[in-house]
């Protein structure tokens, strides 16, 4: 595809800090290469802002390879922008047209407070993970190789699919209820499907769900939006599995 340049209008959420009130600011950005990624476009905007002696826009990013889960952004009403199966760093400006107005907002959730501009604090996910998203392994020197326990291929594949979750928070951001059940469902499933996860299965699901509720995430109503917006294609099956695990654990 031949590279070309487009001129775009941006409406970006600007917020000084966690306590300040934010608002949408409008910027005009010319000569954006359609080959540049969305984050490179934001870099270009920030260069322009710095040249104008204005405060650059704060946004999260790290690997820019679509695997770290650090980038976020609610673009034109969709988590990670208009394409599916990718993170924002993998979104390119060829998905937009000359003259487009692009809305860029931070993830919106009570549990993800805005730190500055487009940066949100996703440590709620870390606390859920710490509540039960692990297996306890004896590392005193006689650690048993994980592969020494046979796992049915089908289960291994499903566990791997669940483990593909990068914790970016797109599921929460896109859910009309601000629910984190796809994330927690994936983290519960990843262990529930494997023999190593059985020992702590009961406490795991109860503790992770309790932590999820305490963080202030909403309740899943099965709209399925998370599954479509998830950059890693985590399936709703994982939420159903968590629901099963929770019922099993609650009745023990």
């Amino acid at each position: 595809m031949a590279s070309k340049s487009i001129n775009i209008n941006l409406k970006v959420w600007r917020q000084k800090n966690a306590k300040a009130n934010g608002a949408m600011e409008t910027y005009k950005l010319d000569d954006v290469s359609t080959d540049s990624s969305f984050l490179e476009m934001l870099d270009q905007l920030n260069e322009q802002l710095v040249t104008e002696k204005k405060e650059p826009v704060a946004f999260d990013h790290d690997c820019r390879e679509g695997i770290c889960g650090m980038c976020s952004l609610f673009i034109n009403g969709r988590a990670h922008g208009p394409e599916t199966g990718i993170t924002t760093c993998q979104l390119h400006m060829r998905s937009f047209k000359d003259g487009d107005t692009i809305y860029i907002e931070p993830w919106r959730s009570k549990a993800f407070p805005v730190v500055k501009d487009l940066v949100v604090d996703r440590s709620a996910f870390d606390r859920i993970q710490q509540a039960g998203g692990f297996v306890s392994v004896n590392t005193s020197g006689n650690t048993i190789d994980a592969n020494s326990i046979p796992v049915p291929k089908q289960d291994a594949d499903k566990a791997f699919e669940a483990a593909a979750c990068i914790g970016c928070g797109a599921c929460v951001a896109t859910c009309k209820n601000g629910s984190a059940m796809l994330f927690v469902g994936a983290k519960v499933s990843q262990y529930a499907l494997l023999p190593q996860g059985q020992v702590e299965a009961t406490d795991r699901v109860l503790n992770m769900v309790r932590q999820m509720d305490e963080e202030g995430f909403g309740n899943c109503t099965n709209t399925g939006a998370c599954e479509i917006e998830c950059p890693k294609g985590i399936s709703l099956e994982n939420i159903a599995r968590m629901n099963r695990e929770f019922l099993k654990a609650s009745s023990k």
Binding site: K11, W13, Y103, R108, S109, A111, N177, G218
Partner: peptide, 13 residues
């Protein structure tokens, strides 16, 4: 569920 998102999005799809 409404309380889980105190600040609404400006643009939704």
């Amino acid at each position: 569920n409404r309380a889980a998102r105190p600040v609404r999005y400006v643009k939704t799809n």
